[in-house]
Computed example of a mutant assay.
Amino acid sequence: MQKRHGELSSLSPPAAAGGLPERRGSRPVGTGRARAKAIVLGEHAVVYGAPALALPLPQLTVTATAGFSARSPAGPDGFSLTVTGDGERPKAARASDGLRRLTAGFRAVMGLPDTPRLDVIIDCAIPLGRGLGSSAACARAVVHALADLFGREVTPQLAFDLVQTAEKVAHGRASGVDAAAVGATAPLLFRAGRAEEPAIGCEGLFIVADSGVAGRTRDAVELLRRGFEERPGSREAFVSRATELTGTARLALAEGRPEELGAQLTEYHGLLRAGGLSTDRIDAMVGAALAGGALGAKITGGGMGGCVIALARAERAAGVTARLLAAGAVRTWSVPLGKQAGHGR
């Protein structure tokens, strides 16, 4: 099943979304949740319309709570944000503007009147700057916390659009893959605003390993863009090759060819490395995973730091994980191929 993701500006408030006098229909506190994601294939190219294969990471979650406060508004929008968890202070600084815009968008779409000050608290276990979708997951959790607080229904389309408003503030240009993946319960294939669950005929484990070094998506995007400008035709070649690798991987995933799926990961790493997006530590981790028996490995996310993702058979996963840790990984998470249990609101 495919879902079409449009723009927030194309939305209109639901017919039932009238005013909310005296907070009627609202709860004292609203709660929302989301999870991390990892890009298996397609990062950077997805911005130019190529497909991307993404994977939810259920071990890494975000919980947001929203409530009314009797204190004076913190600013003209009456919005106060507190972030706890991994790297809370820089995360709060980066998230604030985007989440303010998201909150304003939620109020506008739902037709909500001015309210007392909103206090939002985000407990985020997703490490910052690792390409794991921390900003999108925080935004999605806030969307559902606001919906719970005000007693409103949020469709998947609306949740996506609202998260995108925050993502565009955080990253400048956002493909939408993060906004879709942080609400997924299984691997998804994303292209040009459409998300679908790919067929899965493979068994194995994806191992995500944190290098301990934060990257910045904006910097990585700018580095790649400058490279494209300096080498005419390089952008087209990059997108074409990325599309080919992701397409081959999708078929291998569906038809039960894990060795071929893994090979596409390693090839894609070479593509990103040629663009200057890898680091010595990341390269060492990729090499260690392959030496430990991984079927494939690559950097995941924006690059210039962040994480490595490796594909391994179940019986080789412990050895691959040990090699990654010995090569400099500070922590790892593993996700089996297939549908994940549970779904965060």
Rank of each mutant, 00 (worst) to 15 (best):
F150Q: 10
F150T: 14
E153Q: 15
E153K: 12
T155E: 01
T155G: 01
P156L: 06
P156D: 06
P156T: 02
Q157H: 15
Q157F: 11
Q157E: 14
A159M: 08
F160K: 07
L162I: 09
L162T: 11
L162K: 00
V163G: 09
Q164A: 11
T165A: 14
A166L: 04
A166Y: 04
E167S: 03
K168S: 15
K168R: 15
V169E: 10
H171A: 01
G172V: 05
R173E: 12
A174Q: 07
A174D: 08
S175E: 11
S175C: 13
G176R: 08
D178E: 02
D178C: 08
A179V: 10
A179R: 08
A179Q: 10
A180D: 07
A181V: 07
V182M: 11
V182L: 08
G183W: 04
A184N: 05
T185V: 14
L188K: 06
L188M: 12
L189A: 05
L189F: 04
L189Y: 07
F190Q: 07
F190V: 06
F190W: 04
R191S: 05
R191W: 04
A192N: 14
G193Y: 05
G193N: 03
R194M: 10
R194Q: 13
A195Y: 02
E196H: 11
E196C: 14
E197L: 08
E197D: 11
E197G: 11
E197I: 13
A199K: 12
A199C: 09
A199H: 08
A199Y: 04
I200D: 12
G201E: 10
G201Y: 01
C202L: 11
E203Y: 01
G204R: 07
F206T: 04
F206P: 03
I207H: 07
I207P: 04
I207W: 07
V208L: 03
D210I: 03
S211Y: 07
G212M: 10
V213P: 03
R216K: 09
R216L: 12
T217D: 02
T217K: 02
T217W: 02
T217S: 08
T217A: 04
R218A: 15
D219I: 00
A220G: 02
V221P: 06
E222S: 14
L223G: 09
L224F: 00
L224S: 08
L224W: 02
R225T: 13
R225V: 11
R226W: 03
R226M: 09
G227P: 00
F228T: 05
E229G: 12
E229H: 12
E230S: 12
P232C: 12
P232F: 05
P232A: 15
G233I: 02
G233M: 05
G233H: 07
S234A: 15
S234G: 05
S234E: 13
A237H: 01
V239D: 08
S240C: 13
S240Y: 10
S240G: 15
S240L: 15
A242K: 12
E244Y: 13
E244K: 13
L245A: 07
T246R: 04
T246L: 13
T248R: 14
T248H: 13
A249F: 10
A249I: 11
A249L: 06
A249V: 11
A249C: 10
R250D: 11
L251F: 14
A252P: 01
A254V: 04
E255Q: 14
